[in-house]
Design a protein around this nucleic acid. Structure first.
Length: 169
DNA sequence: CGTATTTGACCCGCGC
DNA sequence: GCGCGGGTCAAATACG
């Protein structure tokens, strides 16, 4: 009980082509639960930042249509700098320039996101019955766009999965 | 030894 | 009023 009675934290979800849940985005995540999802043969994993002042929560769910695709939902925002303790691939993967959003505020990250967005929309059209359920899952997507318009944060480091960096061919 | 992970059980909210 | 779902926490365990 940390005193979080209101869930007003901005939550945004994005699709990532990953086979592993434990994505090293520069922060440490500790799995605190796992539950099976209805309508999905795959379970959902719950992760939380292991940092003392980090109340950020991460939810990872696999796409029952694409076992190699996972829907990552981030909740909240990090409150402390990247742990230098995390030397290794992740820390050396994102250059400082990437962590600093351009004045335009147009990081390449959301770009990939928007690209995959229409992709699912197409599937929804194909699967009308299943689409109903997906609609709920994609709801948070709107929140993501909303947050993007809020320059109050500008902390893209919150979500910088090496997956995207490794996404290169 | 420390950390991280795992599973189960419990709790809360909401719906009908 | 009761049930169900979802979510979280706790403890135990495993591994490095």
């Amino acid at each position: 009980m940390k005193g979080e009675k209101k869930q007003r934290e901005p939550r945004f979800a994005f699709v990532t082509k990953s086979e592993v849940d434990q994505l090293e985005d520069g922060y440490r995540w500790r799995k605190y639960g796992q539950k099976a999802v209805k309508n999905s043969p795959y379970p959902r994993s719950y992760y939380r930042c292991t940092t003392q002042k980090c109340t950020v929560k991460k939810r990872v769910e696999r796409s029952f249509q694409d076992p190699s695709t996972v829907i990552t939902t981030y909740e909240g925002q990090h409150n402390h700098p990247l742990p230098t303790t995390l030397r290794g691939s992740a820390a050396g993967l994102f250059p400082p320039s990437m962590l600093t959003p351009s004045p335009l505020g147009r990081p390449s990250f959301p770009h990939e996101l928007l690209m995959q967005m229409p992709n699912y929309h197409h599937q929804m059209n194909n699967q009308a019955p299943a689409g109903s359920m997906f609609a709920e899952n994609f709801s948070p997507f709107h929140h993501y766009v909303h947050q993007h318009q809020v320059p109050d944060y500008g902390l893209l480091q919150d979500m910088v999965p090496s997956t995207f960096l490794k996404h290169e061919p």
